[in-house]
């Protein structure tokens, strides 16, 4: 089987999608094409079994690997194509699907695209097809986790007045969360830290920036921060009805994996 290797980012994946459907980037010749332009014949490849894998994917001796180089213009072309043919909602689903932490997300997205290229928009409602189910699952998990963490992330006031919050998540949802918090706290400066992926989002009330973080973050809390945390913990405890204790239900809605960054637990 021929496996198109893509870089571990969204642009790289879109370039691999381009290579897959156009037969470019050496997928028919077995050689890498640095320019990233199509150089093959799609029809000639119709019967060639191939797929897309992440560059971090383990390789074996039996398959043939070709690398799809990153190219922003090629990625834009693919994006425009998907938006034009499937609509913006479809493209948003597709882009959010790539944020999934599922190790096979490239293959799942590719399979869905294959179904889409074959049936057009009718593919969206083929809910009994495995490709649609798998695609729906990863998109739902990404958005579900983003929605949960939109409520679970806790910000702390630092001595400088900037609010700092951190989290770790299964999926790469920093951008989705930041978008939401910018909307909500548009007049409040904050830093949001995804410490699993070592990235931060910085919002100063005017502009937004995403930065990598190589070491830990040191912050100095404001004087009133501990007071608010203490009142919040007390509130969380007191508002529960003791006669109706149900820790199982609590775990179901608020999994333990998220509790380490929530002050009340």
């Amino acid at each position: 089987m021929k496996k198109i290797v893509c870089a571990d980012n969204y642009v790289g994946f879109l370039c691999a999608v381009h290579a897959y459907f156009t037969g470019g980037n050496g997928t028919n010749s077995g050689h890498e094409n640095e320019s990233g332009t199509p150089n093959g014949n799609t029809r000639a490849l119709a019967n060639v079994e191939k797929t897309i894998v992440n560059e971090k994917h383990d390789r074996n001796f039996l398959d043939e690997y070709v690398f799809a180089p990153e190219d922003v213009e090629t990625a834009r072309t693919v994006r425009r194509g998907l938006e034009n043919k499937g609509g913006k909602e479809f493209y948003c689903d597709f882009a959010d699907g790539y944020r999934s932490g599922n190790p096979n997300k490239e293959e799942i997205l590719l399979n869905y695209l294959k179904l889409f290229t074959k049936h057009g928009r009718a593919a969206f409602s083929m809910y009994d097809r495995a490709e649609v189910v798998a695609f729906g699952d990863i998109v739902r998990k990404v958005r579900g986790e983003a929605h949960l963490l939109c409520g679970f992330v806790r910000f702390m006031e630092t001595a400088s007045g900037v609010y700092y919050g951190f989290f770790s998540a299964d999926n790469d949802i920093l951008e989705i969360l930041t978008r939401d918090f910018v909307h909500r706290f548009n007049a409040q400066s904050f830093v949001l830290h995804d410490y699993k992926r070592q990235k931060i989002a910085v919002w100063d009330g005017q502009s937004l920036e995403y930065l990598p973080v190589e070491s830990g973050v040191e912050i100095e809390l404001s004087d009133c921060e501990r007071v608010f945390q203490s009142i919040w913990k007390q509130y969380h405890k007191n508002v529960s009805i003791k006669e109706r204790a149900n820790p199982r239900l609590q775990r179901q809605f608020c999994p333990k994996k998220y509790r380490h960054f929530m002050h009340e637990f």
Binding site: C150, G151, R184, A187, V239, S240, K242, F253, C254
Partner: peptide, 26 residues
């Protein structure tokens, strides 16, 4: 969200925590 104001609402609502009786704190 309005300029100069704090806050916005999500049409579906957001749960911010869950108490020991399993109810949401929004």
């Amino acid at each position: 969200a309005q300029k100069g104001q704090l806050g916005a609402c999500h049409i579906a609502g957001v749960c911010h925590s869950f108490t020991a009786d399993g109810r949401c704190i929004s």
